[in-house]
C-alpha cells in the first residue's frame, strides 16, 4: 500500500520535481553561486592572505574602492574603450561583409544554397583557437600573404613610403581582422534566416509599383531585415567585447582589452576584488546590448 502511495506521489510531484530540480540545482550551485561570489568579491578588500581577500578590516564591510578605480583609473577606462571600439568595428565589418553574403545566399539555387550554408557553418565546428592561429601564420612578417600585401602597398605608394613588410601582428587591426574572421558566421546565419523568410512577392510588388531594384532593396528588403541585423550584430559584439584569446595572440600588449585585464588582475596582481569589479563592470556594460537583442528577438517572434 505504501508503495502505491509512493508511486502516486512520484507521478504527481516527484517526477516533475526531479526533472526541474536536477538542472536547476546544478545551475544554482555551479553557475549562480560562483557568479554571486564574484559579485560579492567586487566589494571586498584585497589582502595578503590566502585566499587574498577579506570583508571589513580597515574598511567598512563594503569596499567601493575597486569600482571607484574602474571608473577613474585610465588603465581600465582605456581597456574598456579598446574593447568596445574593437568589438564595434568588428561588428560593422561583419555587417558590411555578412549582409551581401547572406543576401547572396538567398539568391542562389536551392542545391547550391545548402552546400554554401554548410560551408558557412563548417568553421564553427573546427577549433576556434586554430582559426585564430591560421591568421597568425598569414599576418607574420615572412608570410606569403603579408608579402603580397607589401608588394601591393609598395607598388601603389611613393618610393620613400615603401616598407619591408606590413606590421600587422600585434595591432588592433589584427584583433579586428581575426574577430571578423571568427565571428562572421554569427552575423551571416541570423541575417540569412531573416532574409530568407521575406516574401519574394513583396519585392515584386514594389517593382510592380515602380521601384527599381536598388529602391526595392532600400524600401522593402533592408527595413525588414533590421531584426536580423541587430541579432547578428549583438551575437558578434557581445562575445567580441569580452574576448580574451584573440587579443592575447594577435593584439597589442600595450593596449589590452578588458578580458586580459581581468585575467591579469586575478593572476599576476592577485587582486581578486579588483578582477571581480572589472568583471561586474563588463557585465553591466553588456546589459544594454543584451536588452536591445532580446527586444528585437521578441519582436521577431511576435511578428511571425
Amino acid at each position: 500500500m505504501s508503495e502505491g502511495r509512493f508511486a502516486r506521489w512520484f507521478d504527481a510531484r516527484g517526477w516533475p520535481l526531479l526533472l526541474i530540480g536536477a538542472p536547476y540545482l546544478w545551475l544554482v550551485v555551479l553557475f549562480l553561486l560562483p557568479f554571486l561570489i564574484v559579485v560579492g568579491m567586487s566589494v571586498a578588500t584585497n589582502t595578503a592572505t590566502a585566499p587574498p581577500f577579506s570583508f571589513g578590516g580597515e574598511h567598512p564591510w563594503i569596499n567601493w574602492d575597486p569600482f571607484t578605480r574602474v571608473v577613474t583609473d585610465g588603465l581600465y577606462l582605456r581597456a574598456f574603450l579598446t574593447s568596445i571600439l574593437n568589438a564595434f568595428v568588428a561588428m560593422i565589418f561583419c555587417l558590411l561583409i555578412g549582409y551581401p553574403m547572406a543576401l547572396g545566399l538567398t539568391r542562389v539555387s536551392k542545391s547550391w544554397r545548402n552546400i554554401l550554408l554548410m560551408l558557412v557553418i563548417l568553421p564553427f565546428w573546427t577549433s576556434f583557437l586554430l582559426r585564430v592561429y591560421a591568421w597568425m601564420g598569414l599576418m607574420g612578417k615572412n608570410s606569403w600573404f603579408n608579402g603580397m600585401l607589401t608588394d601591393a602597398w609598395n607598388f601603389l605608394v611613393p618610393l620613400d613610403w615603401a616598407v619591408k613588410s606590413i606590421p600587422m601582428m600585434h595591432t588592433n587591426f589584427a584583433v579586428v581582422l581575426v574577430m571578423v574572421y571568427t565571428y562572421l558566421p554569427f552575423m551571416i546565419l541570423p541575417l540569412y534566416a531573416s532574409l530568407e523568410r521575406l516574401d519574394p512577392n513583396l519585392d515584386e510588388a514594389a517593382m510592380d509599383l515602380g521601384s527599381r531594384p536598388y529602391r526595392v532593396f532600400l524600401d522593402v528588403t533592408l527595413p525588414q531585415s533590421v531584426p536580423g541585423m541587430v541579432a547578428g550584430g549583438m551575437l558578434v559584439f557581445i562575445p567580441a567585447a569580452g574576448e580574451l584569446v584573440i587579443p592575447t595572440l594577435v593584439g597589442n600588449a600595450s593596449q589590452p582589452m578588458i578580458g586580459k585585464i581581468i585575467q591579469d588582475e586575478f593572476g599576476q596582481a592577485r587582486d581578486w576584488p579588483m578582477a571581480s569589479a572589472v568583471a561586474v563592470a563588463l557585465l553591466i556594460l553588456m546589459v544594454v546590448p543584451t536588452m536591445i537583442y532580446s527586444h528585437y528577438q521578441a519582436k521577431a517572434e511576435g511578428s511571425k
Binding site: L202, D208, L209, D219, Q224
Partner: peptide, 29 residues
C-alpha cells in the same frame, strides 16, 4: 522592366509591406 510598366498587380498573397502602415502601403507607388 516591371517598374516602368503602367501595369499594376494585386497579388494573390496581397504582398502588403508588413513594415509600413496602410497609408504608406497605398502611397508606396
Amino acid at each position: 522592366p516591371p517598374w516602368e510598366r503602367p501595369v499594376h498587380m494585386m497579388f494573390q498573397s496581397y504582398a502588403i509591406f508588413p513594415h509600413m502602415t496602410v497609408e504608406a502601403n497605398v502611397g508606396y507607388g
